[in-house]
C-alpha cells in the first residue's frame, strides 16, 4: 500500500465556531492507482487532497506514506517530502504570472538543487509530454486555459513524483480541453503514476480506476470502476 489514512480528522476553529471538515477518514491507496474523489461542494474533498498533499495537517489521525508517518514530520521534512514525491495539478492552474511557462515548470526542480542543464532537459521532456513546448517562453496570461492546465500538469510530472494530486483539473476548462487533460492523466497512470483526483464530473470520475464519494467530511462510497 502506498498510502494509508488512519482516523484522519480535520477541525477548523474560529473564535466562536468549530467546523469539522474531515471526520474519521480511513483510506488506503495502492501504488499505480487512479482514484477519483467526488462529492458536493464543502464535503471535504479539497481538504482531504490538501492533507494527502501535506500542505495541510490533520487535527488527529495518522497519514502513512510508504513506511513513513507523515504526521510526525516537521515543516522542513514535509517540504523535502513534497519535493521528492508529489506533483500537483490545481483547478485554477496556479501558475506564477511573473514567470514564463518554462520557468513555472522548472520551479518544481529548483528546490531539488538539480544542475541547470538537467533541469532544462527534464523541463523540455515534460513540455513535450503535454505538447506545450512551443509556448515555453510565453507568460501564463498569454495562454488559453487548456494550455495553462497542460503546463500545470507538466510542472506536476517534471519531478517524476510517486503521487500526482489533481484538484478539479478540468473544472475551469471547456469540454475539449477537459478531455485532453484527462487523456494526459490517463496516459500518466498507464505509465505507472499514482493519481488522486478531485472532480465534480462523473464522466471524468469514470475514467479513474476507483471512485471515492464523500459527504459531510466522511467517505460514504469507495468503488472500483469497471475497466
Amino acid at each position: 500500500m502506498l498510502i494509508e489514512l488512519n482516523h484522519i480528522q480535520r477541525l477548523y476553529r474560529s473564535d466562536e465556531v468549530e467546523t469539522t471538515a474531515l471526520h474519521d477518514i480511513e483510506l488506503g491507496i495502492g501504488s499505480g492507482e487512479f482514484v477519483a474523489i467526488m462529492g458536493p461542494s464543502g464535503c471535504g474533498k479539497s481538504t482531504l487532497l490538501n492533507i494527502l498533499g501535506t500542505i495541510d495537517r490533520p487535527t488527529h489521525g495518522a497519514y502513512i506514506f510508504g513506511e513513513q508517518d507523515l504526521t510526525k514530520l516537521n515543516e522542513a521534512a514535509l517540504a523535502a517530502f513534497r519535493r521528492e514525491n508529489l506533483g500537483y495539478v490545481f483547478q485554477s492552474f496556479n501558475l506564477i504570472d511573473e514567470l514564463t511557462i518554462e520557468e513555472n515548470i522548472e520551479l518544481a526542480l529548483i528546490y531539488r538543487n538539480m544542475p541547470k542543464s538537467e533541469r532544462r532537459e527534464r523541463v523540455a521532456q515534460a513540455m513535450d509530454r503535454v505538447s506545450i513546448g512551443h509556448r515555453a517562453r510565453h507568460y501564463p496570461s498569454q495562454l488559453s486555459g487548456g494550455q495553462q492546465q497542460r503546463a500545470a500538469i507538466a510542472r506536476a510530472i517534471v519531478g517524476q513524483p510517486r503521487l500526482i494530486l489533481a484538484d478539479e483539473p478540468t473544472g475551469n476548462l471547456d469540454t475539449e480541453n477537459g478531455a485532453q487533460v484527462m487523456d494526459i492523466l490517463q496516459g500518466l497512470n498507464d505509465e505507472g503514476a499514482t493519481i488522486i483526483m478531485v472532480t465534480h464530473s462523473p464522466s471524468h470520475a469514470d475514467l479513474a480506476k476507483r471512485r471515492v464519494d464523500m459527504l459531510d467530511g466522511q467517505i460514504v462510497v469507495s468503488v472500483r470502476n469497471a475497466i
Binding site: 515543516e75 517540504a79 517530502f81
Partner: peptide, 16 residues
Amino acid sequence: MFEVGIRKTLGATTGR
C-alpha cells in the same frame, strides 16, 4: 502569498 503557497507546495522550505 499565493506564489508562496505554490512554491511551498512544490517543496520549498520556509528558509528558501
